[in-house]
């Protein structure tokens, strides 16, 4: 029975260390502002679609930051997902569908073939603009679901970054780390105490 208790203490200690590590890892990435930032860099000039499965699965506002190549401009359009799909059709596009928390990256699928569709002339956009330099697009969830389309005017974009910000996430990750620390310390204490009492009873 004593061995069982020691094994359980050891397992809880390991779990505590893991939880501590997860808490520290999250709080380091989120920072004190609680900003969860995910990044993706395209390799070609095809239009980049930020899909509702990326933008509209959390009821929190977010910001999309698009950085063009040096000296280039960014075209941005925001429309209903079915309209964007109809306009893009089977032409080439990069679809950003979800985030990968482990890598703090955005997962992309390259779809379609051939020349990109002439989407800039389509009149499906709730808003559209062309801006020199980096562009930050605030997205609230009132008009969800929506798809954002971005592309560099002349060259591939440098990066697309999506950021959700919630300070409670930082607090929660710190609390998680603290809980893991407590669990690890308590379990290790129990393990040490168990081993001592085992040695005493054996002697």
């Amino acid at each position: 029975m004593a061995i069982a208790k020691q094994l359980l203490s050891l397992a809880l200690a390991v779990l505590g260390v893991v939880v501590l590590g997860v808490g520290v890892w999250f709080s380091t990435h989120l920072g004190s502002s609680g900003a969860a930032t995910f990044r993706w860099s395209p390799s070609d000039t095809r239009p980049v679609l930020l899909e509702p499965s990326l933008l509209n699965r959390v009821d929190k506002p977010l910001t999309v930051t698009v950085r063009p190549a040096q000296g280039d401009s960014v075209w941005v359009g925001l429309a209903a997902p079915s309209d964007v799909d109809a306009a893009i059709g089977r032409s080439s596009a990069a679809r950003l569908t979800r985030v990968a928390v482990r890598d703090w990256a955005i997962r992309a699928e390259r779809t379609g073939t051939g020349e990109p569709a002439a989407i800039a002339g389509a009149e499906i956009w709730r808003s559209r603009s062309t801006s020199p330099g980096a562009v930050t697009i605030p997205v609230d969830q009132r008009a969800a679901p929506e798809t954002i389309v971005v592309h560099g005017e002349r060259a591939p974009l440098r990066s697309v970054t999506v950021t959700w910000r919630d300070q409670t996430w930082f607090v929660e990750s710190v609390l998680l780390g603290f809980a893991g620390l407590l669990l690890a310390v308590a379990s290790l204490g129990a393990l040490v105490a168990g081993r001592r009492s085992g040695r005493l009873s054996a002697s």
């Binding site: 499965s53 509209n56 209903a80 309209d83």
Partner: peptide, 24 residues
């Protein structure tokens, strides 16, 4: 983790009304 961030299914697109808003 899903509960903490409030992850949910993508809202369904409303396709019945006008495809453009009045201002557009």
């Amino acid at each position: 983790a899903d509960q903490v961030v409030g992850l949910h299914a993508v809202p369904t697109e409303q396709t019945g009304g006008a495809p453009l808003n009045e201002q557009t």
